[in-house]
Amino acid sequence: MNACSLQPATLQPCNLQPHQPLPRVGTAPDVGIFRAMFHLGGELGYNRAVSEQPVIELQQVSVVYPNGIQALQEADLRVNKGEFVFLVGPSGEGKSTILKLLYREVKATTGHVLVEGHDVGRLAAVGVARLRRRLGVVFQDFRLLDYKTVRENLTFAMQVLNTPPQIIRRRVNELLEQVGLLDRRHDFPQQLSGGEQQRLCIARALINHPPILLADEPTGNLDPETSVDIFRLLEAINLKGTTVIVATHDHAMVDRMLRRVVYMCGGRIVGDHPAGSYYQPDECPCDDAAPAARGASAEW
């Protein structure tokens, strides 16, 4: 696949080198450099006006799994509408748990999780379904419907919203073309490579134009070139007003995008770096301690 095949129609052809060296300084790079990197057509991502209206709030949230592992400890987080937030930190430190709390795969042991003002922990089954329709989720392990074709995986996500068939057809074709899977639309997920499954998962997350996009290691299975394309896609989606939260290990990409970075360690939020600055992972206070959450792996 062409490295740039994931780009949205509004973007120019990509010429970004995946490991392009960047200065590690605490200030934002020159606007010209950033624009040249991502060709975002004039608007600089991290300088965008972000609403002060919180769409996601974690209030003193702790999560203890039934096996006793504490995955999250008294986490406080507020994400405003239209923000792009990276959750970074070592494996098993609670990044995925935060995302799972938001789409209610796990429930907080203590504290409150609010999404668009709704207390997620108090939602009934139908309320959870409605919440999930407002969220696009890119899962670390894809979670595709194995017995459905590529096309049907996308169609199903629209059918549950009772979308008219004509709109489904148009939107599915459009998105399949964007993620470069139009030719594979009749294949089943098992017939796709890891990268293709990842792209399908991203396409499914985007299909209903969700106001909030959650991505758990969206580039974990991708080659560097495709990873760049994925982040460019997420960037473009964010520019349209979607709130994006990405849990990632891809420090190079986090460095390049200069967005808000929430650093997690030992199940705690230990750093919150605003957009336009570089975070310093070396400063993590947990480095010497054995975090309680280690082992609370993403397999949960």
């Binding site: 789409y103 795969e105 089954a125 139908v126 959870v128 379904a129 409605r130 999930r132 329709r133 989720v137 899962f139 979670r143 595709l144 419907l145 194995d146 017995y147 199903f156 996500a157 549950v160 919203l161 499914r204 209903n208």
Partner: peptide, 12 residues
């Protein structure tokens, strides 16, 4: 499958 259907917003 049922679990994933739920994750993409399908009601019970």
């Amino acid at each position: 499958e049922m679990f994933i259907m739920g994750l993409v917003g399908a009601t019970p």
